[in-house]
Design a protein around this nucleic acid. Structure first.
Lengths: 178, 178
DNA sequence: CCTAGTTGTAATCCACTGATAACTTCATTG
DNA sequence: CAATGAAGTTATCAGTGGATTACAACTAGG
């Protein structure tokens, strides 16, 4: 029989998924908890009860996307541990558009010290992971991350991606990558 | 004689300057017009009257920082039109920390179609200007902008810059640049 | 010096948003 | 089946933040 009620853990996972999509679209301050609630098919107060505060929910979203990003890098490195092979897998990251966007909004919300701490630590871990997985030099890793950040902001401004507004300069930049 | 009252234009310039600093620190949604007003030493309703809406004020801030960024690039290109000479001038950009931060918050707020349009156009112009000034290839320009975006997000998360929290990975990345 | 236009403020509105409290409904288990 | 606890809601609050209105104060031109 179809369960109408889920465990708090299960429902929490659904809410978190909705939160990731919502935060990716509108950022930390720009996203309303009510919006997340409706996306998850749940009442707004319940969202708060599951995560305590909006801030904690955002931190959970950051945590979630960073785990996924690291997972994608690990999978890619298993196939081929070279940096440019990982690079080709930026496509996979951009495929799950929310991942890099939530991270970007995390950077933007770093003015909040709690979020700042979280984001600095996570970003450092990703950098370190990339170097460990590929054996890349600091220089190579920096170039790799740089490209990723450009793609991220271009994705944010809808200059690349499935729902992109076509722009000549954006195509030009995109073509310089694989 | 000490003028207490300024023309709307003069006062507007002061408010705009305050807005740039405020938006750089807290982003579009995160910044309150009242905060900008207090920074400019003026009442909150007057800020609104000078610029119409908060959104228009943000657009004015974007416009202001983009003009300044282009100005810096032009000055740098006058000294030496090579791309890596421009690169050394990222330091100048990072010196005026608000410039890249406001732009970053513009990217993050691209979900708003009006802001999105503005930001796409401005970013495209900057890309084009760089290519024109230096004669760089699309590939070179992309690498240049990429590095800039990484520095921007690192600046946002206070991993580089004057008020930076010292972090080993951040220093490692910073050292890979001139 | 006076008056017309401009600079600027105080008071206030109202919609919104995160959070709390109190209550209801379901499901499990002894 | 009763009861206990967990899942989820409705109602509501308290604070906020952008915007409007009406008014006050200054300054320049005649």
């Amino acid at each position: 029989m179809a369960r109408v009620r889920l465990t708090a853990e299960e429902r929490g996972a659904e809410v978190l998924e909705a939160a990731v999509r919502a935060f990716a679209a509108s950022g930390y301050e720009g996203t309303k908890t009510d919006e997340i609630a409706r996306m998850a098919g749940v009442s707004q107060p319940y969202v708060i009860r599951l995560f305590g505060t909006k801030q904690q929910l955002f931190l959970a979203a950051i945590d979630s996307v960073c785990r996924r990003i690291e997972e994608i890098f690990r999978e890619a490195a298993e196939e081929a541990p070279e940096l440019d092979a990982l690079g080709r897998n930026y496509k996979r990251l951009l495929g799950e558009r929310e991942l890099l966007l939530v991270l970007l909004h995390g950077f933007s919300a770093s003015g909040d010290p709690v979020i700042g701490d979280c984001v600095r630590e996570r970003f450092g871990s990703i950098y370190t992971l990339i170097r460990e997985l590929t054996g890349a030099s600091a220089q190579e890793a920096r170039e790799f991350l740089s490209a990723g950040m450009l793609l991220t902001v271009m994705s944010a401004m809808q200059a690349i991606g499935p729902d992109a507004i076509p722009l000549p300069w954006a195509k030009e930049i995109e073509d310089t990558l694989g």
